[in-house]
Write a protein that binds this DNA or RNA. Structure first.
Length: 168
DNA sequence: GCCAACGTTGGC
DNA sequence: GCCAACGTTGGC
């Protein structure tokens, strides 16, 4: 199993949109390296949904790959902003996997918290100038991110102080 | 809103 | 095939 992170903006497509629709075709990626990662995704792989550009930035949820990447239909649609005149049905340029909703992170795991974690400094996400919209995440990074998401720093502090955490 | 980093385009 | 110019991304 492999792990990934994809960027979006909540105004374009949010984790709540995915929760409502249950599944979505992750289309419109127009960068070759990102495309190659999309094609490498396998059914069952986990995908962090990251919001970029709009404050606060961070991971807002998790999806799971439900179908392997196939030709991205938007590259053939002339009216689409994703139209690519050089793509043909015989030799498509761009590919889109299907993602299924997994969970919303509440609260979200913000970029600031990720940056504070020493074991995560090598994440592609945190590299200077990294604009890749589809990124690989290592298994160790995945586990750490999940544990941070499930144990927000506030809860950590409360538990260290010996204060019971309510789960209601 | 600024601007550094990056990918793509197109002239040569 | 080089590389300057340009457009875009995205953190700050």
């Amino acid at each position: 199993m492999n792990y990934w992170l994809v960027k979006t903006e909540p105004s374009a497509y949010s984790i709540e949109d995915l929760k409502r629709e249950k599944k979505t075709l992750w289309h419109g990626v127009r960068n070759y390296q990102a495309r190659n990662y999309l094609r490498a995704m396998d059914i069952g792989d986990k995908v962090f949904i990251y919001y970029s550009a709009v404050e606060p930035t961070g991971i807002f949820g998790l999806a799971v790959v439900s179908k392997k990447a196939a030709a991205d239909p938007s590259q053939f649609e002339k009216k689409s902003g994703y139209y690519d005149a050089k793509a043909t049905k015989d030799s498509p340029r761009w590919f889109a996997p299907e993602f299924a909703f997994d969970k919303v992170f509440a609260p979200p795991l913000l970029r600031d918290e990720i940056k504070k974690e020493k074991s995560l400094v090598k994440m592609v996400l945190l590299q200077k100038g990294s604009r890749l919209s589809v990124q690989p995440v290592t298994g160790a990074e995945f586990n750490k991110l999940i544990s941070l998401a499930e144990n927000p720093s506030g809860a950590d502090l409360r538990s260290k102080a010996g204060v019971a955490i309510s789960h209601g």
